[in-house]
Amino acid sequence: MTVMKKVWDPAVRFFHWSQFILLAGLWYTGTEGLMEWHQLLAYTLAAVLLARICWGFYGSQSARFSQFAASPLKALRYLRRPEPVMGHNPASSYMIFALLLLVLLQFVSGLMTTDHIFTDGPLVRYVSSDVVSLATRWHKLGIDILLIAVAVHVVAAVWHSWRHHNVILGMLHGKLSAPKDMGVPTPKAGWSYFILVVLFWLAFYWWQGADLIRMLSY
């Protein structure tokens, strides 16, 4: 007999959906040349991401990196014979780490990117021209790789929800079906995660955001 059990805390769910929305906004603003908005969204996503990385070390058990990090062999065994997992499954862990790394690389490279016309990243002046050139090339290529990874992640989530556990709805209400006798640690409320998001966002606003908002008001 299976029942619905609370697995994912508000912090994990907020990060998951806000990352999806912010990436869509970053793609659109970058494509349309709305660079002030693009940078504001980038700093917002960076605040959400950095807080999630911190939460991955001290947050709820299902949110911790140590909980879902898995060997390739374990991931393959899971793909061959899926079983209830109270959190991210071993196979999805590789996509999660890849997405976190790609988003982080995209943000860092963006700080050192230039279009040689209107917009320079805030770190362009501090690094060599070779680093700027490399960062600019990666930033243009990285968004395509990131979008492909997101598409693969979405397809995998839809397939998994259809065949095994509805992880898409689970990321909305935080619950997954599991055997009645399977123990599940109680997720934390996640207030410290949201406090970290605000603190990181304020730091970015103090560093660059205020100037960007002034530029938007002209």
Rank of each mutant, 00 (worst) to 15 (best):
L216M: 15
E83R: 07
A189F: 15
W201A: 15
T29F: 03
A75D: 01
Y94F: 13
G142L: 13
V124L: 06
H88R: 04
H38P: 01
D211F: 04
T44D: 08
D130E: 12
V103L: 11
I168E: 08
I21P: 00
P179V: 14
A189S: 14
P90R: 09
V150K: 11
W138M: 12
A98F: 08
L22W: 15
Q39C: 03
L50R: 04
L100R: 04
G59R: 03
F15H: 05
V3K: 15
G59Y: 01
M171D: 06
H153P: 05
F118W: 13
A70S: 12
F68R: 02
S71Q: 11
L73P: 00
L26P: 02
A42I: 11
G170H: 12
K180L: 09
Y218V: 15
A203C: 10
P187D: 14
V108T: 07
T29G: 03
W162M: 04
Y94W: 12
M1I: 00
W37G: 05
F15T: 02
L111Y: 01
L199S: 13
P72Q: 09
F14C: 03
W55T: 07
D211K: 03
I168G: 09
W37A: 03
T113S: 07
V158Q: 10
L102G: 06
L102E: 10
V197Y: 01
A11L: 09
I96T: 09
Y58E: 01
G33Q: 14
K175P: 03
G190Q: 04
F97W: 10
Q19P: 00
V155H: 11
V103R: 02
K188D: 02
R214Q: 14
H139A: 11
L111G: 00
A151C: 14
S128A: 11
D120I: 01
S92P: 01
K188C: 02
P84C: 08
R13E: 06
L146R: 06
P82W: 14
C54F: 00
L22K: 07
G209H: 09
L111T: 04
H173T: 05
E32D: 12
A47E: 05
P187A: 06
A203Y: 14
K175G: 02
V3Y: 08
G25P: 06
A203N: 10
K140H: 11
A46I: 09
L176K: 15
F20N: 06
S129F: 12
Q39P: 00
M112S: 01
Y218F: 15
M95K: 05
V167L: 15
L111M: 08
I168D: 08
L123K: 06
S177M: 14
V154A: 05
G142S: 15
L147N: 02
F194H: 14
P185A: 08
Y126V: 05
D130A: 12
L79G: 03
R80M: 08
G30W: 07
P10D: 04
F57K: 07
G142Q: 12
